[in-house]
């Protein structure tokens, strides 16, 4: 789209340490994020836009895909605990309703919606304070979409901050509390949901540098 939304998320997640400026504050505390692992430590998780390219190792099992972010916690005396890993992955398979015969199935054997749930599971496993979702419902079926909205609501109610990128206005209006609009790399609007309308948001997305209403 060229609005710079994905780049902004990637920067928050420490993927552009060399060509980024500015300050990141979490709960009033300024932090430096220079790598994805630093972002994870700071409690940030990123569900990327392209799950096949950036979210999953398609040729590997559901289990390895979910546990990859928290292997450190599954290790004792230098060895991974299969038992702990099994508990973790089957837990998320149930919690998110991932439809599969086993956690040993290959990620690529699942439908788009179930693949997206694996990506969500691997990030929820890190217990993030802030969850960045880049087009989380793109290319998945309507049921899975509804389930993901439901999950987002639950997580937000539980105190997690969620920043979702979306190009679908109905989706934005349905799930957001606050809407930020970006256009050509700049923030053009910051609207509470009560004041947001499709037409109003579209205006900020299309016309750069228009004075705020």
């Amino acid at each position: 789209m060229g609005a710079g939304r994905t780049e902004l998320m990637e920067t928050l997640f420490g993927l552009h340490p060399k060509n980024s400026t500015g300050e990141i504050k979490i709960k009033e505390k300024s932090i430096k994020i220079k790598s994805p692992s630093a972002a994870i430590t700071a409690g940030i998780a990123l569900v990327p836009e392209d799950r096949k390219l950036h979210g999953l190792v398609l040729g590997q099992t559901i289990k390895s895909n979910i546990s990859i972010t928290i292997l450190k916690q599954l290790e004792s005396w230098g060895m991974l605990s299969r038992k702990k890993e099994k508990i973790l992955t089957t837990g998320y398979i149930h919690k998110l309703g991932i439809k599969t015969s086993s956690d040993q199935a290959m990620a690529k054997s699942l439908s788009g919606g179930n693949q997206q749930k694996i990506v969500l599971a691997k990030w929820l496993a890190t217990n993030p304070q802030i969850l960045l979702l880049d087009e989380p419902t793109r290319g998945i079926d309507i049921n899975a979409k509804a389930e993901i909205y439901q999950l987002m609501k639950q997580l937000a109610a539980g105190g997690m901050g969620i920043i979702m990128i979306s190009s679908e206005l109905p989706e934005i209006l349905a799930v957001s509390d606050r809407v930020l609009v970006m256009c050509e790399g700049e923030l053009t609007a910051d609207v509470p949901i009560e004041e947001a309308t499709e037409a109003g948001l579209l205006k900020y997305a299309l016309h750069k540098n228009e004075p705020a209403a």
Binding site: F13, L15, S35, P36, S37, A39, I40, L46, P48, L53, H54, G55, L56, V57, L58, G59, Q60, S64, S67, I68, T69, L71, K72, L74, E75, G78, M79, L80, K122
Partner: peptide, 25 residues
């Protein structure tokens, strides 16, 4: 087969971008 490093090796070979985004160094 038994260590974190091993999993990282397979993840990097399977999809380096995804591995990087998973916080793997």
């Amino acid at each position: 087969q038994k260590t974190k490093l091993g999993r990282y090796i397979y993840a990097i070979g399977g999809n380096e971008q995804a591995a990087k985004l998973s916080g793997i160094n």
